[in-house]
């Protein structure tokens, strides 16, 4: 049984079909990077896995537990206890602007896990220090740089000890000089053995962090391979065309 298993996923927005029978698996030692042209459904896939999108068919499992089951009519079924084992970081940080950094980190553990205030704060400070943000605990999101905001968002997700982390284009909104610090934080997390699924446009970073790269187009997996194989020797023409285009643009 694979760690993450997506079976026959169907997702539609009105008359627009994003996935019509999509399959994907990932082991618990993998860091899977999704690449592909914009609008191919990479972000939608992560949103489906987080339970943010109502799916029309298929199942999504974590650790052998199918926690999301789509329904053609009516709402999908969603197991909230498994959902809470998945953490997600978004492109636009989505920090709570009215709470300090510490407040952002402590809200979920205190209010939905019943963790005590001092325990939550200790844990938060430990994470912040680990990410070099110890001196920012009392700051408000508006006082942070984009890179700092995104690292706080990662720390906030880690407060709940997720078994799987989803990263949805987390460096796309950042100024180029701020991208490095966020990528470093993610590398550190990778070295600590956190299973992750990452959507990114940064091919260099994808190659560095991934154990498995999936090239996706129009809601289908075109090619999945280890990073050196996929980037060094792509088997499919479409993968090659895509890589040629993005690598050219990146210069």
């Amino acid at each position: 049984m694979a760690f993450v298993e997506i079976n026959n996923l169907i997702k539609r927005y009105g008359s627009l079909t994003i996935f019509d029978g999509f399959d994907l698996t990932m082991s618990s030692t993998d860091r899977l990077v999704l690449i592909g042209p914009s609008g191919c459904g990479k972000s939608t896939l992560l949103r489906c896995m987080m339970g943010l999108e109502d799916i029309a068919g298929g199942t999504i499992s974590l650790g052998g537990d199918p926690y999301i089951t789509g329904a053609e009519r009516g709402k999908m079924t969603l197991d909230k206890t498994v959902q809470k084992e998945v953490g997600m970081v978004f492109q636009h940080y989505t920090l709570f602007p009215h709470l300090s950094v510490l407040g952002n980190l402590c809200l979920a553990p205190m209010r939905s896990r019943g963790m005590g205030k001092s325990d939550a704060q200790d844990k938060a400070m430990e994470l912040l220090k680990r990410f070099g943000l110890g001196d920012r605990a009392k700051f408000y999101p508006s006082q942070l740089s984009g890179g700092q905001k995104q690292r706080v968002a990662i720390a906030r997700a880690l407060m709940l000890d997720p078994k799987l982390m989803l990263f949805d284009e987390v460096t796309s909104a950042l100024d180029p000089e701020l991208v490095k610090e966020v990528e470093q934080t993610m590398m550190e997390l990778a070295e600590a053995g956190m299973p992750m699924m990452i959507v990114t446009h940064d091919m260099h970073f994808a190659r560095n962090i991934a154990t498995q790269v999936v090239f996706q187009e129009r809601g289908k997996v075109i090619e999945a391979a280890a990073p050196n194989d996929l980037f060094g020797n792509p088997k499919q023409d479409r993968t090659r065309d895509f890589l040629k285009n993005v690598l050219n643009i990146e210069g």
């Binding site: 949103r47 987080m50 998945v86 978004f90 709570f96 809200l107 209010r111 939905s112 709940l160």
Partner: peptide, 26 residues
């Protein structure tokens, strides 16, 4: 923004916590 609701779901916040501690203060 709806992304604030998304963040709440991703953090597993129950609806009452979402309303009282995230939406109302903002």
């Amino acid at each position: 923004e709806s992304s604030q609701h998304d963040a709440c779901i991703a953090l597993g916040l129950p609806p009452t916590v979402r309303t009282l501690f995230v939406i109302l203060p903002q």
